[in-house]
């Protein structure tokens, strides 16, 4: 360490009679003091992680393998893997439609948001006032899910904006959120609408890193704009596209606030997703065990995607 080598630090340390070298002794002392200070600085963080990270993880794991109702800690009964088996048993709604809905919701969001943001980001890149456009596209992201959900829910109603537009075009009204067939796609559209802004942001940064000389070379060769987009822009944008894909997919797998606001999982289980099912089992029915088991199953799904992301990006770095 630099500080231990400076003369002043050594001078400040009290001279030791036992040590043969006062410099070495001072260095050790300063290092000890720094360790004490470091742990003092980290104390709130470590305390928090102990109480709100490690303890809850252990507790949740215990609950996922227990039968327990109510709040009396003495009533927790270990049941092994029964809760997990129950989730995948015949007649359970967890695998289908709930987990299937979760995947469809995440996948649909990614596809829509990605398609929208690629087109928008490519076009913004051609324009002036890029900051202004980005700001507009960003509005949904800083807005609470309660606002986004309620506004869209209201717009989907028979007297709302969407049906108003359909009627103006001479089309019939649709019961977007009440019809089991259209409910899930309808909330997917809202989730995608709300996440286009951040995807545009990441993609615009990716576009900026493509050297202008590639485009100039393509222009010299007489390539058309579509060829340029397919042969230059898209391939060179791949890392950003991948980042958008995976982060949106992960957040799609676990988000349920929007669904809670818009449909509460209904009609029936048409828009029920795994995280919402966990929440309801726990806080509506007090079935902590099955709820925690559902949480861990979803966690494994998210973890697999996260690890795939790490693996893909690490391989990318090695290739580079």
């Amino acid at each position: 360490m630099v500080n231990a080598l400076t003369p002043t630090t050594t001078e400040r340390a009290a001279p030791s009679t036992r040590s043969s070298s006062p410099a070495v002794d001072g260095r050790a002392r300063s290092r000890r003091r720094q360790a004490v200070v470091a742990y003092l600085f980290l104390a709130p963080t470590l305390l928090f992680f102990a109480v709100f990270l490690i303890l809850p993880l252990g507790f949740a794991l215990l609950l996922s393998m227990s039968r327990w109702a109510g709040f009396d800690l003495g009533g927790i009964q270990p049941v092994g893997t029964d809760n997990f088996a129950g989730l995948f048993a015949d007649g359970s709604t967890f695998l289908a439609p709930i987990l299937t809905n979760t995947l469809l919701f995440a996948l649909g969001t990614v596809v829509l948001a990605l398609a929208g943001s690629v087109v928008v980001a490519t076009c913004i890149d051609n324009l002036r006032f890029q900051g202004l456009w980005r700001t507009l596209y960003f509005l949904p992201i800083v807005t609470t899910v309660v606002a986004v959900g309620n506004v869209w829910k209201y717009m989907y109603e028979p007297g709302g904006l969407v049906n108003g537009v359909l009627n103006a075009l001479g089309l019939g009204s649709m019961a977007f959120l009440q019809d089991p067939d259209t409910a899930l796609p309808s909330v997917v559209v809202v989730q995608a609408w709300a996440s286009v802004g951040s995807a545009v942001l990441i993609l615009t940064a990716g576009l900026k890193s493509i050297p202008e000389s590639y485009y100039e070379a393509a222009a010299l060769d007489g390539a058309g704009p579509l060829t340029v987009f397919w042969k230059i822009t898209l391939p060179l944008l791949r890392p950003s596209l991948l980042l958008v894909c995976i982060t949106q997919f992960i957040s799609g797998l676990q988000s349920f606030a929007l669904i809670t606001v818009m449909t509460k999982g209904g009609p029936g289980d048409a828009t029920n997703v795994a995280a919402l099912e966990m929440y309801r089992q726990a806080f509506s029915y007090g079935r902590w065990g099955p709820a925690s088991a559902a949480a861990f199953v979803l966690f494994v799904v998210v973890l697999v995607v996260t690890l795939a992301q790490l693996w893909i990006f690490r391989r990318k770095e090695e290739d580079a």
């Binding site: 076009c123 596209y137 509005l139 807005t143 609408w193 704009p225």
Partner: peptide, 25 residues
């Protein structure tokens, strides 16, 4: 400068998207 060849198309797309974003608000 090929990127700037179709400004009107880009404007159309970006403005449409911006309208779709802002209309719910």
């Amino acid at each position: 400068m090929i990127r700037r060849r179709f400004p009107w198309l880009s404007y159309l797309v970006v403005v449409t998207g911006a309208v779709l974003t802002v209309v719910p608000f």
